[in-house]
Amino acid sequence: MNGVEGSSVTDVAFWVVSAIAIAASIMVVTLRDIFRAALFLALSFLAVAGLYILLRAEFLAVVQILVYVGAISILIVFAIVLVRDMPGGGKDNHLKVVAATVAALLGALAIFVSYNSDFTNLDALESSNADVAAALTGTYDLDASNAVGDEYEDQIAVAPPEGAEGTEIGIFSNSTGSIGGLFIRDFVLPFEAVSVLLLAAMIGALALLRQRGEES
């Protein structure tokens, strides 16, 4: 595959999806009709899922669609229906101008920071294994066999260390499995903690909404 061509396709896709996400979010925060705003929110989530795919986080894209679009957006719509406050809708409060200024400033600062930071200059890796250190210095695209060209392929510091083969370390081509493995091995504690969190959330929601004696 031609790197340049691949790049431009990815780029165009990226900008289109980003535009959809941003536009949908703007609609969310500016519409007075809350129901329409909820729908635009779902659209925004979809766009973000697309963005995830472009960023080669396929597992997460699917999770995004399942959880955000499939569950959270529905939940929000249900809540809107239960709270029959339609006329009120998405009214603005007295902080409109201040909030707009602050948000704009914060966003501008973040953009400024991200454009002026040197992301290739990460700390030197202190490992006794020199090969590993050499292998992982700087930005590194481990999926050497990736069909979609990427300019960072030029920035591989050293060739992959000995004994390592492309398929073995093609993590990005199998992110689901890798993530699953990580859950079991390195992130097992947060995994368990998050399950406790979900349990607590469920119990809490039920406790909140149970009405004494009447229908819940």
């Binding site: 980003s18 979010s25 703007i26 909820a38 809540a79 902080l95 948000a103 966003g107």
Partner: peptide
């Protein structure tokens, strides 16, 4: 990508601060 992320964050922040409907804030 970080640009997109920042813009989205700013939009979300605006909505969280400037809206009076609780559900809108959650969104």
């Amino acid at each position: 990508v970080l640009l997109v992320s920042s813009v989205l964050f700013a939009i979300g922040l605006y909505g969280a601060l400037a809206k009076s409907n609780a559900i809108m804030i959650l969104m």
